[in-house]
């Protein structure tokens, strides 16, 4: 067993893991971050992409034992409690979500992209989005989501109130 300290979504975890435990299994089954999906286990589908020290990484190809001291962000940690990140809101508004299995990864890839390029062109968006396979074919909507998110971030809108977003687009507590 290997002792590692990981910071996942700003919380520090001290873990004892087998040397070959994959990061995806640590995140999903040990720590319960189910936004991280396994679609192929071979770095092909991209559904397991998380940010490791800010870089998009296939968590199915990463070994937890090698990541001592790493900062990991999954979709669950994109915004503080009670908030929703502009990228998430952009993905809702771009209306591209279908089965949603690949969506967490597209959002994480978008985060990595927008951290580096604030105003990506179509070619750049396609290049980064080629990291994740979407069989529903939502790609064009996800391209649009990146542009929308870039706009929000440029306007300085990083976080949105989660309850407001929920009520706007989803279930509502009804006034008497």
């Amino acid at each position: 067993m290997v002792k590692v300290t990981l910071t996942v979504n700003n919380v520090k975890y001290e873990l004892d893991v087998p040397p070959l435990e994959r990061l995806i299994d640590t995140l999903r089954y040990r720590l319960g971050f189910t936004s991280v999906k396994e679609g192929c286990g071979r770095g092909e589908c991209g559904s397991c992409i998380v940010l490791v020290n800010g870089n998009p990484v296939h968590s199915c190809l990463a070994l937890t034992s090698r990541l001592d001291g790493a900062e990991i962000t999954t979709l669950e940690g994109l915004a503080p409690a009670g908030k929703m990140h502009a990228i998430q809101v952009a993905y809702i508004e771009a209306r591209g979500v279908q089965c949603g299995f690949c969506t967490p990864s597209f959002i994480m890839v978008t985060k990595a992209l927008l951290d580096r390029v604030s105003d990506p062109d179509d070619k750049t968006i396609r290049e980064w989005h080629s990291s994740v396979l979407c069989r529903c074919g939502s790609y064009p909507y996800y391209f649009e989501a990146v542009k929308r998110a870039a706009k929000y971030l440029k306007e300085g809108k990083v976080y949105f109130d989660e309850r407001e977003v929920r009520e706007k687009y989803h279930l509502k507590v009804l006034a008497r």
């Binding site: 971050f33 189910t34 508004e93 949603g100 967490p104 977003v165 929920r166």
Partner: peptide
Amino acid sequence: VRWDAIAKITGQP
């Protein structure tokens, strides 16, 4: 916006 969009973009189980 579809009924489950928020669950999906927040990575719910």
